[in-house]
Design a protein around this nucleic acid. Sequence first.
DNA 1: CTGAAAGCGCTTACAG
DNA 2: CTGAAAGCGCTTACAG
Lengths: 353, 353
Amino acid sequence: MPDAAGEDAWMPHRARDTVTLRDVAAEAGVSLATASRALGGGRSVAPENARKVLEAATRLRYTVDASARAMNRGSDAIALIADDLATPAVAAVVAAMERQARTVDAFVTVSSTRGLPELQAATIRNLAGFRPRALVLTSTRISQDPAETRVLDELLAFERNGGRVILYGSGSVHLPFDAIAVDDRGSARLMGEYLARTGHRRVIILAGTRERAYAAARTSGYVEGLLAAGADVQDIRIVNCAVSRQGGFDATAQLIREGLGGTDVLVAINDTVAIGVLSACRAAGIDVPGQVSVTGFDDVPLARDLTPRLTTVALPFTEIGIRAIEMAMRERPSEPVRETFRGTLTVRGSTSG
Amino acid sequence: MPDAAGEDAWMPHRARDTVTLRDVAAEAGVSLATASRALGGGRSVAPENARKVLEAATRLRYTVDASARAMNRGSDAIALIADDLATPAVAAVVAAMERQARTVDAFVTVSSTRGLPELQAATIRNLAGFRPRALVLTSTRISQDPAETRVLDELLAFERNGGRVILYGSGSVHLPFDAIAVDDRGSARLMGEYLARTGHRRVIILAGTRERAYAAARTSGYVEGLLAAGADVQDIRIVNCAVSRQGGFDATAQLIREGLGGTDVLVAINDTVAIGVLSACRAAGIDVPGQVSVTGFDDVPLARDLTPRLTTVALPFTEIGIRAIEMAMRERPSEPVRETFRGTLTVRGSTSG
DNA sequence: CTGAAAGCGCTTACAG
DNA sequence: CTGAAAGCGCTTACAG
């Protein structure tokens, strides 16, 4: 601590330079190397010395400088880049990642990009500067934007420099990185089959919008399942809507105005839309599931708290978060690994039958 | 690049060592120092050389090592620690912070702690290791937990080591750090006055729970305003509820079951609770604002999309985010600075009068 | 404007 | 098990 006035050491309330490993070593009466080993790897240090160092460290409130450490042994940070952190599904995955990371001495950092390719690329580049162990990218937005290739470039550059890249989401199937995917189609199919099996025949699918990566897959899955279990393609109607509570509300209100006719079920592209659907039904005095069933997809925490409780397809967010960390922590495999999760049909109160 | 087989340079698909500033300098035919200056400060470099360096850097896809840079000139990261990132109010502040940070070449990192003091302390410690420029802590949870003092200790230690600490939220008024506060009481008072002025006399306040730092202040403010504008204390009822959509829903459903009597308005502690209140009213066929008015607090983005649109107190989240960054970027003032924001009464469709 | 050199705070072969 | 020394990738006085 290069301090002109030695007196400063006695004035704990004055701002001072950071306490450094050198200070700890001095305080403990050992060499820098020993202090480092005692706090770091824990490799071969006399118990007596280890104790002295630990004590000195806590006495001095020493915190290792993560930058300096990262320069030598690599970072233990894992950076997640998502469109929007306030989405329940993303929040669930993040929570699981954080929990899992703690068990392997890693550290999760999150950033959001609103799904904008330029911002994604810039964020990757920024984060890459920290040389994190891995970058986990998840996006529900599809785009043919030229900026998209910049995203790919940045990812490749990061990997070339030794970082791990993990993709999560149904897009980007063709990219040369480890990936965690959700079998949206197969999962949605389970819902379609269940609905047709329980007598739902006239179906309206609130399919979201094309720029959502999962929209087409889920919609196809719904239709497939319905047909496979006996529904008639003539009785299935597909309606687009904004992917939000409000989008579900508006689309449903509109449908109600036009007349729901003999519709048996409103199948939403995800839980958030389904919540809007339920609100619109309630607002119009339509009983769910008495007059019409409603279903979602995701099983966000809120889904089981709604009235009625929402029948949906539960995605294993916790496992996904855990797996993402595991992939991030292991060496890069020779071939990209792709792991697919399927959802579980979760029947609750919003469907009849 | 210490590479045994020089041939590797010709095999772009093989993983290689990170490209370093030394490589850029060599490629540009200048010294390390000049390369550093051209990319870093921009201080005094011949235009010709600057161009060469920039070109070499992009050609080599060079990214500065943030750790190495941080060791020399300090980090440009600002770390936000919140209870829960998926809260709309927090999300709004984070978005504003990120945007503002970009304008000052800073970088926002976020972490969540579920409001648990142990996790808060551990997170502060972890992040402190990265020597970020500042730590912005926001928590809505109050606790007399002994672990709370560990939080304080970590914060002090971080500051002692030269970091900036910014608190945001109505708790922790007494702590010796720069703070951004919301005048919950004064803001709520505006709502109370408005309601009494527009003829609302029989009032039920859905006051949340005690462990929310802002609950008591807002409730007091509501009452104060109501009384100031002519309401009778006898006609004001305070009901606790969980601070969530479901909490608002349940409490309201219960009230409806007991009979709302001549209640003129249901005053929620925040918008999220108000959303639950609206749902419960809708479910019970109670017209808002025809039969009863409903109000919130925060003005989350969703508030204006509800049916009816929610009358609420708008908090200036964008300004708060901007201010937080500004405070984080400037030198520590000799005395802690405390800045208070007041909300704006925002009348929309959910109140009569 | 430029370069050689010292130094940021750590970790880790290397030789005891 | 331990310490002196080299080195991680940068930045920044210091002397031209």
